[in-house]
Design a protein around this nucleic acid. Sequence first.
DNA 1: CCCGGTTACGCTTGTCGTAAAGATT
DNA 2: AATCTTTACGACAAGCGTAACCGGG
Lengths: 290, 290
Amino acid sequence: MDPHLLRTFVAVSRLGSFSAAARELGYTQSAVSQHIAALEADLRTGLLTRRPVGPTPAGVRLLEHAGPLLLRLDAARADVARLAAAPPDTLVLAASPLAVGPRLLEVLPAAGVTLRVLPRAEVPAAVATGGCDLGLVDGPAAPSDPLRLPDVAPLGVAGVAEEELAVLLPAGHPFARRASVRLEDLADARWIDAPDAGMPLSGVGGALRSAGPRPSLRYEGTDVRALCALAAAGHGLVLLPRRVAEAAGAGVAVPLAAPRLVHRTELLFPGGLTGAAAALAAVLRDPPGA
Amino acid sequence: MDPHLLRTFVAVSRLGSFSAAARELGYTQSAVSQHIAALEADLRTGLLTRRPVGPTPAGVRLLEHAGPLLLRLDAARADVARLAAAPPDTLVLAASPLAVGPRLLEVLPAAGVTLRVLPRAEVPAAVATGGCDLGLVDGPAAPSDPLRLPDVAPLGVAGVAEEELAVLLPAGHPFARRASVRLEDLADARWIDAPDAGMPLSGVGGALRSAGPRPSLRYEGTDVRALCALAAAGHGLVLLPRRVAEAAGAGVAVPLAAPRLVHRTELLFPGGLTGAAAALAAVLRDPPGA
DNA sequence: CCCGGTTACGCTTGTCGTAAAGATT
DNA sequence: AATCTTTACGACAAGCGTAACCGGG
């Protein structure tokens, strides 16, 4: 189970072709074939069907492990490298779309900062593997509870802000004139699932008895404005931080009364924080909003 | 960053000796020396001090990654192996001490079941790496919230039971006659930290504003009776499931009123569940206590 | 001087590329 | 017939063990 073999395996699985994987990895076709053969011999199981090329059940199972594994491996390498490396001169800050809030915009105007907006799930990985120096992630959580983040690496975590949640309804919606709504009252409604840009519905469901709101439309992308437009146009409901929902321009924002959830933003930072990164982190982290 | 090199590195770090690690791993001293040299060359950093042998700061950082990494690697191997292997004839069930509750004892009298009580943190690893077929873990959580478990591998999770919490006080304690207590009232008290046997205090602290109760005495071991005896003798307070605290025989159990936490038990099971394991899992998982 | 880690060297094994063969659409 | 994977084989590098070396208590 050499990491190289694993890397080849995921490349072949993703591309559906030995030769394409070989091109991508800078090997010959032959080497790729040998890698897969070695893996299959090691695990004593077929991992790929040939012609067409695709993972077998065992291969699917292995793929589920391979991703996190290779990620952690990169994270480990990046982490020790950071210890020796000089503090970066230009900071790269990774943030999920809704983590870009007023607090960040206030602090940002520092020289040499790059803001990189990523899908929520990729932010921890980006920080862990050294692609970014700091990360800001957001998500739903019980008040003053930490977010449930995938632990790709031992990262430092600090709460940055917590904000009320609201549902963005189209103007004519029966609940649009209410002062607040309960999620269970909207359980049968159509929701837009936007795990990258909006709040992940699956996380919200964990707090409810049921499996959470059922999505009707899925939006992949990181543009919050487009998401708001969809919701205002009546394609489905969206859960957003209250200020964002109210600033949407169209649609009606109704605060969420139950379950007791907040929109929480957290700062992620790698172990050995030095220089400008440490300074920015200190400014961001100190007052965790009530 | 070959896993073999990593394995050698953690062995050397743990044993504090190249030769001892060589004996343990079945290599020669020389090979171990070469392994470490290769790792240090690869990462371009010293990882170990020699004479005495111990990890450098970079080595410490790498060690934090190496453990989970090697664990995941074993988990991956075990997971695909389980797909091909025949369903086990004798089930091995891993459980943290407080996960052994009435529900389990009711169901257990099946033929060929081994119950293995492990420290809480080791249960997920035992299930993931195939040492055990099923796992039962417990911990504090907000009502109907899943536990925060380290994700060593993609394991199946199912809620099994939730129970009230209580503080076990010595007989003469000022709060001993109360009907219920709030944790913040006891914030200044002396607590026993028993992460293996009792409830992990750090997890409880996450729900509070402060860093959680400060431990005074630390108990390492998995014997709940001994822990209760310590608490009853006045060495510190202990947080326990209410039934356990009440059955302690000595001391006084006072239910916890705030924060709203419950003692939650969850079943862990690997992906391809077959045969007797699937049957037992089905019996255990179906009615998640309110 | 002894214990323990490092270095040198030879052998074995593994890994890659080239090229020919085999299989599938 | 064309495309893509597998197999054969030779060159090269990597990994391990034996043994000599070296540095600190």
